[in-house]
Design a binder for these strands. Structure first.
Lengths: 342, 342
DNA sequence: TTGTAAGCGTTATCAA
DNA sequence: TTGATAACGCTTACAA
């Protein structure tokens, strides 16, 4: 077995409880013994056993991360490594480790989350997505376990701490950016309509269209799962309309990349023939050709704030639910240009 | 407190140990009591407490994942979500959960790993990269803790279970692919030369060059950190040579994407003016324009095998170290073409 | 086939 | 300021 608190106690000639106090940095312990114990720890190479500690403590110093199921293609989105980096940064500052459940189906994910919570593997959970009518979120709420959501909860917003951008306004701004560039036929390409973020961005788009006095056209709004089979068809149809759009608001950089490809295959030039603006500003948007004008939503920051709010909630359970809004900003690159009216 | 084994025992009118046996599916327990206990568990909504179990068991049912430090830009590489997906799949089959350390510096990572191991947070570790002279790997070896490496260990290969592609041959094949397409001026663009995989691929490239009777030129070999400041310069220089290459072997799809961009800015057309072949075959290689001819290294599979070997090692500690070689295959797309000799 | 009881490595309460 | 000692929730000899 590894070296335990007892070994340290023996070597330092104190009781185990004293060693425990030294670890916890209990103020009422003499500097002398503190030093002696610390030396003993160093000498033996002592490391506290987390399981034992958790058991006694009722706390794990671990945060659970719930991603979309890995069967889902969004799993591939660079959004995730980046939020995790943010979460991780804050977690690390507070000596929390990260724990992940995974699963290839919604059911597996659900079971994983239940296990994680009921099995007391973690002190709190960050839900990395928000979808309409999500069992997991419902469960989290009912279980009364500390958790925060990245994104906007579909219901019970008031009761759930969540970290989000103002996606409505962001989409409105993005759309208006195209409008300012003289575009008046603007399409919207959304991702999974089950995601609240998709809905929010669509609403923002609609608002901008309406506010500018343009007519909202159903056939300008498509949803594609570009990673799936046949994902290109939606774009094909869109561009085959009698009056195809000259500007596109796309809800995700990765989708925009796919669209860039489809367009190039149709021999439609970006930004000359059509302007494309998208969201997230992942590193790819910079290295694609053309580089993408994208709304930077500060992914890292979302993660960082999420961990921050969660840790607060863990430490002070009475903390009121709150909404943290992370700012966004439009980053202009080369996928948009003023419409050529000739 | 949550419902414990005692509560279940009481309700089912048996001893706690019996409940424990039912959980462990101990064969010598009567079907009758087994059923009774199971009903009690269901009725109370019992879930075993992992900490308690780990403490008694000396096992955590968790696998630790060690990524490069998140300060490092490779963190962004879609390689990671994909290996993790693979690890996760196998882990899940065996009811292992995933645990992640993170940190922004090598030191932080190191401390995290030590904590994870000494604190008995995990039963084994998957190291997701292999670099020349890595402290963490050295530590893992010395600590005699179950671990596997994805990639080829820099030293002590015989003693370390690792999962890898034959990167030497893969690079040789990739280079020969260009040679077959009549290219005779072929450059090599590598990533971090501290990574063993970079070295292996470079050697494979050299071998192919030499085997084909082409002359190896120092100035055709560059290493770039394309995500870093000034990453484009290496390519710029390469293409400004008096006799610039007409083919490029690039060690990573993401780098290849960056190169595609740099080339397009220099008004050099791919594949017309220059052919590019890269590695990893991440989803992006398909949706880039042009799509990338890439060596598929079966990332998911790497992860899956890694978890498999690790779990075996955890269960049977005497297991001999072994090397698992995951096959690769060249996926032809549109970034390469036969050299136009006119 | 089942129960009793010790032990896993901590923390925390109560005395001293 | 420190030491005994009882939890924490589970597993596992050993007994029955």
């Amino acid at each position: 077995m590894a070296v335990t608190i007892k070994d340290v106690a023996k070597l330092a000639n104190v009781a185990p409880s004293t060693v425990s106090r030294v670890i916890a940095n209990n103020p009422r312990i003499s500097e002398a013994t503190k030093k002696r114990v610390k030396e003993a720890m160093k000498e033996l190479g002592y490391h506290p056993n987390f399981s034992a500690r958790s058991l006694a403590n009722q706390n794990t110093q671990a945060i659970g991360i719930v991603m979309p199921s890995s069967g889902n293609s969004v799993f591939q989105n660079p959004f995730f490594p980046e939020v995790i980096r943010g979460i991780s940064a804050k977690a690390h500052e507070n000596k929390y480790a990260l724990y992940m459940t995974t699963g290839t189906s919604e059911q597996e994910m659900y079971d994983g989350v239940v296990d994680m919570i009921q099995g007391r593997r973690v002190d709190g959970i960050v839900l990395l997505y928000s979808r309409v009518d999500d069992r997991i979120m419902t469960y989290l709420q009912e279980s009364n376990f500390p958790f925060v959501v990245i994104g906007k909860p579909f219901r019970n917003i008031e009761d759930i701490t969540h970290i989000d951008n103002d996606n409505f306004r962001a989409a409105q701004d993005a759309t208006e950016h195209l409008i300012q560039q003289q575009h008046d036929r603007i399409g919207f390409v959304g991702g999974d309509r089950g995601l609240v973020v998709t809905v929010d961005r669509l609403l923002g788009y609609e608002k901008a269209i309406q506010k500018a006095g343009l007519t909202y056209r159903d056939d300008y709004v498509v949803h594609e799962e570009f990673l799936e089979e046949g994902g290109q068809e939606a774009i094909n149809e869109l561009m085959s309309l009698e009056e195809p759009p000259t500007g596109l608001v796309v809800t995700d950089d990765l989708m925009a990349l796919g669209i860039l490809k489809t367009l190039s295959e149709m021999d439609i030039k970006v930004p000359d023939d059509i302007s494309v603006i998208s969201f997230n500003n992942v590193m790819l948007s910079e290295i694609s050709t053309p580089s993408l004008t994208s709304v930077c939503i500060n992914i890292f920051w979302l993660g960082y704030e999420a961990a921050d709010s969660l840790i607060e909630k863990i430490k002070v359970p009475e903390t009121k639910p709150k909404r943290v809004t992370v700012p966004y900003r439009l980053v202009e690159r080369n996928s948009c240009q003023t419409r050529q009216t000739n």
